[in-house]
Design a protein around this nucleic acid. Structure first.
Lengths: 225, 225
DNA sequence: GGCCACGTTCAGCGGGCCTTCAGGTGGGAT
DNA sequence: ATCCCACCTGAAGGCCCGCTGAACGTGGCC
């Protein structure tokens, strides 16, 4: 069980290191966001403990950057005090859990194990929805054995839908995730791109992976059609 | 050829990393003696570059501890200035060579190779992507049986792509890995070098190993084109 | 000192991707 | 049945992204 601890407070970092190693973790330390990001990219961790306030790149940014890179290593965020954590932004950036300092070490360990276990199962090396297969790292998509060419936007949209397979996502959510949080253009663009996607991943195969939920949004069916 | 660099001066550590990777080494960094010891134990390196003065456990101690553990990975010791190095103690601890800072980088590389070779275990690490074959240590590239001449930058770029065969790597990632983490010039340079590479490894062979993923980056095809 | 190779910068270009728009269609409510 | 609104559709244009060729600077080597 490999864990990366990104924490600038040396004392805390060290006690975490010692404590976690005693618990059987293999621990790497990074002292700032830049290092943390680099090490997270370079190595393959089971879980990352990420301080929110860091010199250089802060925790939010580290987290979101990793997610954008298609790295879904489970992340447990540490915050200095209650209220510092903006839960909405935190969830957006893709953290899996968070704890407020000071915290009880046994509870940290328990949560780490939980998050790592959960993440290990769900880690989307490849996203699958029915006979749709999406490889975020390679940026490739297959319907069954047939490769499908998508543009950047199309891929981004499909990946977002696939990350929420079975759930309805609203147009607003889509705009914020695939376009920009403060996108203020015509939401019709979502419809246009849903159409593009359907033309590529559904129509040629006589399926309907993307369903329209009138008044609510869209849903990628887990049955793939 | 894997090398562990144990060095607390961030700047030096980074330039070593970049430089050595350009020379075809796979580089791990450790920022203090404790980390260095742990990483040396955890992984199997061809050679270790070990700073003498380190926070936590110093270089002497790291070296002797490894030897006591029966780990005889070749070690090249770095000392801040002449005289700091106590040759007797150094030999006692079991280092294989040493250099005084500041040092010439090419000489460091040459000594590293020598020490690693002496330490036996010549491991032919080769990166393969389709009928592309890359030998990072020897800095050579073949397409099938045909050898290809590349410049340093070209090679560094190709090696990076090859280390991520099948995955899309963004221009940003490439700049950070092949140029510098805080490179702030024109990203067009990546395009220019991709072109150079294509002219050498693709065009003469009628292949397309390097694919452009518009809006995302580049991908070295695992199918080799 | 002069030559050469390599690294880097620059500006122009071409294609395809993104976005917009205007009109059409269908479901649900009254 | 009819109206309204959400969603669908096809086309068109502008712009961004990556490609290209050339020029410039620099450091090593003869």
């Amino acid at each position: 069980m490999r864990v990366l601890v990104v924490e600038d407070e040396k004392r805390l970092a060290w006690s975490l290191r010692v404590g976690l190693e005693a618990e059987g973790f293999a621990v790497d330390l990074a002292a700032d966001g830049t290092d943390g990001l680099w090490m997270a990219r370079e190595n393959d961790y089971d879980v990352i403990v990420l301080d929110l306030m860091l010199p250089g790149i802060n925790g939010y940014k580290v987290c979101s950057t990793l997610r954008e890179d298609g790295d879904w290593t489970p992340i447990l965020m540490l915050t200095a005090k209650d209220g510092e954590w903006d839960q909405v932004e935190g969830l957006d950036t893709g953290a899996d859990d968070y704890m407020t300092k000071p915290f009880s070490f046994p509870i940290l360990v328990a949560r780490l194990r939980a998050v790592a276990r959960r993440g290990a199962r769900e880690r989307p090396v490849q996203l699958v929805a029915g006979d749709l297969r999406i490889d975020p790292a390679a940026r490739r998509v297959w319907r069954g054995d047939t490769g499908i060419e998508l543009t950047a936007r199309e891929f981004s949209l499909l990946a977002f839908l696939a990350r929420n397979t079975g759930d309805v996502v609203s147009k607003r959510q889509i705009l914020e995730a695939v376009w920009d949080v403060d996108f203020d253009g015509d939401p019709n663009i979502v419809e246009v791109y849903v159409r593009h996607l359907r033309n590529k991943i559904d129509r040629p195969f006589g399926r309907e992976a993307i369903q329209t939920i009138r008044g609510a949004g869209y849903r990628l069916g887990s049955d793939g059609g």
